[in-house]
Amino acid sequence: MSKVNLYKFSAPATFYGLAGQMIPGFAILSAILFAAGLYISFFVAPTDAQQGEAYRIIFIHVPAAWMSMFIYVVMAVYSGIGLAFNTRLSAMMAQALAPTGALFCFIALFTGSFWGKPMWGAWWVWDARLTSQLILFFLYIGFISLQAAIEDPKRADRAGALIALVGVINVPIIYFSVKWWNTLHQGASISFSKAPTMAHTMLAGMLVMAVACWTYTIAIALYRVRLIILERERHTTWASEILGGAK
């Protein structure tokens, strides 16, 4: 792709149309993959010898946890691009991704708790991974509330971008310190990392579900970014043309 083209697509007006064309594809793909992933999770993957049927929760838990971390990194990349090249669209993409990332983070916490209860007998343990996931959730909340509190869109974009970058630099430090804290205080009690030897079908199921979440995220973020673009650009001529056509 030539440079000119890239600039053309990074203009919100062009991207609005492009995103609109891409959404149905990703949405359909995501629905198919979710169906396949659920089929593998419940009908193909065998019962686990140690954990019985309760282990099937990992088919939603692990992909959600992966997605929540991955989305934060993507957000930070968009934020970095936005700050460096002053492109409005990348800030809008970061803003469009944040709620979905927070949602996946919440799902990972929720399902982790529902997995922990039958396995460990407690709804919540201060396991290193669960704790880091909780802190990641706090980072998402901080990003979203900072953007929501600033009325001037330009300042909101840039302030959000900065806090996302600060957050992404801190995530490894936080993870490391929580892990250190956990080994010191809890000793060798319980951990997610001692997963039972994973059968190929189980891994396949998790990967299919992860790709399904991935395509879902793309579709929903594109949908949300279109709304953000429309809200911001409603005074421009191209936006009023679209609105005229939508009626």
């Binding site: 659920l38 309760a54 929760i57 838990h61 959600a64 399902t111 529902f114 997995w115």
Partner: peptide, 13 residues
């Protein structure tokens, strides 16, 4: 025997 945990996890998600 884990119906409650499995179905609430998937259901709520």
């Amino acid at each position: 025997g884990y119906a409650f945990y499995v179905w609430s996890s998937f259901g709520v998600s």
